[in-house]
Structures are given as C-alpha cells and as structure tokens.
Amino acid sequence: MPETWDYTLYIPNDLRAVTVCRRTLRLILTLHGLIGLVDTAELLAAELVSNAVRHTKGPAALRVRRTPQGVVWIGAWDTDPAPPEPPTPLGQEPEAEEGRGLGLVGACADVWGWEPSARFGDEGKYVWCTLGA
C-alpha cells in the first residue's frame, strides 16, 4: 500500500501565491519520491490556484494529498461557492491568454471536478484533479 499524506497551503488573494504553490508542490512531490509527476502537477496546480486567485476576492488554499490507492489529488479552494465556468476544449479556445485553464486541466489530469466546501469555515468550493502515480 502506498504511503498516504495530506498537505494544505493557505494563500492570500495575490497572484504571486501561484509561484509559491508551484514551488511548494514541487518540493512535496520530490521529497515523496514522485519526481515523475512534478511537471504535470505544477501545471495543474498553477491553473487551479490561478483561477482561485483571479476569480475570487478572498483567501484561497492549495491542498495536495496522496490516497491509499496511490493517486495524487490536487485541489484549489476558494471562497466563491459558484461552480467554475465549463472548460473550453483545447484547440477551440479563443486567441486570448485567458480561458484555457480548465481545458488544460481536463487534458492533463486523469480526472477533474469541483465540489462545494465549507472546510475552512467559509462557504466556498474545491476545484480538483487527480494524477495516477
């Protein structure tokens, strides 16, 4: 059975927090011997956290855990309980830089989704994805 763990990094509503989350995630995965997942996981976390910071006004959090089945779960929590906008399929996105995030997540993750959450004492949601180790 794989080693399980669960980390949560609370972040302010600041785009610089995206870099902090990426680097923290890289360190977590490297120290747990999952270096092969680092590049994809960093991309996924950056998209999820970036959306949380850009589209809400409150604090956010990055949560990363490994399940007993060996799956790495990456989630971004924010204070807005509204569901995320449906992703635009890759190749059909507008020319603008924005609007591709969840399309990338859908293309790179094994599974992704969202769920309402009151975990941190406020209403909000998790947008999450998984990667098989």
Rank of each mutant, 00 (worst) to 15 (best):
46 A>M: 05
53 V>M: 02
88 T>D: 00
52 A>Y: 05
86 P>C: 12
69 Q>W: 02
84 P>D: 06
82 A>C: 04
87 P>N: 03
86 P>K: 10
46 A>D: 11
46 A>E: 12
62 L>V: 09
50 S>W: 07
64 V>K: 13
77 W>M: 09
67 T>F: 02
56 T>G: 13
56 T>I: 00
81 P>W: 08
48 L>F: 04
61 A>C: 04
63 R>M: 01
56 T>Y: 03
66 R>T: 05
53 V>Q: 09
82 A>E: 15
69 Q>D: 15
62 L>I: 06
49 V>E: 05
66 R>G: 02
55 H>M: 03
65 R>A: 11
45 A>I: 03
65 R>F: 08
73 W>Q: 13
73 W>S: 08
86 P>T: 06
73 W>G: 02
75 G>V: 02
48 L>C: 07
81 P>G: 07
58 G>K: 11
65 R>Q: 14
62 L>H: 09
66 R>S: 06
63 R>I: 00
88 T>I: 12
66 R>C: 04
53 V>K: 10
86 P>Q: 10
74 I>K: 12
80 D>T: 08
85 E>I: 08
48 L>G: 03
59 P>D: 10
80 D>P: 09
76 A>K: 08
90 L>I: 07
50 S>M: 08
64 V>S: 10
88 T>F: 00
83 P>L: 05
93 E>K: 06
76 A>G: 14
48 L>V: 04
86 P>N: 10
72 V>H: 06
77 W>K: 11
84 P>A: 07
68 P>S: 14
74 I>F: 05
69 Q>H: 15
90 L>Y: 04
78 D>C: 09
67 T>H: 09
53 V>T: 13
60 A>P: 11
47 E>S: 01
53 V>G: 06
69 Q>N: 15
64 V>A: 15
81 P>H: 09
89 P>A: 11
66 R>N: 05
52 A>D: 04
54 R>Y: 00
71 V>Q: 15
59 P>L: 00
85 E>M: 12
51 N>E: 01
87 P>F: 10
55 H>V: 02
81 P>F: 07
45 A>Y: 04
56 T>Q: 14
56 T>C: 13
45 A>H: 07
89 P>Q: 13
91 G>P: 10
77 W>L: 06
62 L>F: 08
60 A>C: 09
75 G>R: 13
87 P>I: 05
74 I>A: 12
80 D>F: 03
79 T>V: 13
90 L>W: 06
89 P>N: 14
49 V>T: 02
53 V>N: 08
71 V>R: 15
91 G>T: 05
45 A>N: 11
58 G>S: 11
75 G>N: 04
77 W>N: 11
50 S>R: 14
70 G>K: 14
69 Q>K: 15
58 G>M: 06
47 E>L: 01
84 P>W: 08
71 V>P: 12
88 T>W: 00
93 E>L: 01
52 A>V: 00
87 P>E: 00
81 P>N: 09
59 P>V: 00
58 G>W: 09
63 R>S: 10
80 D>I: 02
78 D>H: 12
50 S>Q: 15
56 T>A: 14
77 W>T: 06
84 P>G: 11
69 Q>I: 00
66 R>F: 00
47 E>D: 12
60 A>D: 04
59 P>E: 08
67 T>W: 01
85 E>H: 14
80 D>H: 09
60 A>I: 00
50 S>I: 00
78 D>K: 14
54 R>C: 02
83 P>T: 11
78 D>I: 03
78 D>R: 11
78 D>L: 08
91 G>F: 01
62 L>A: 07
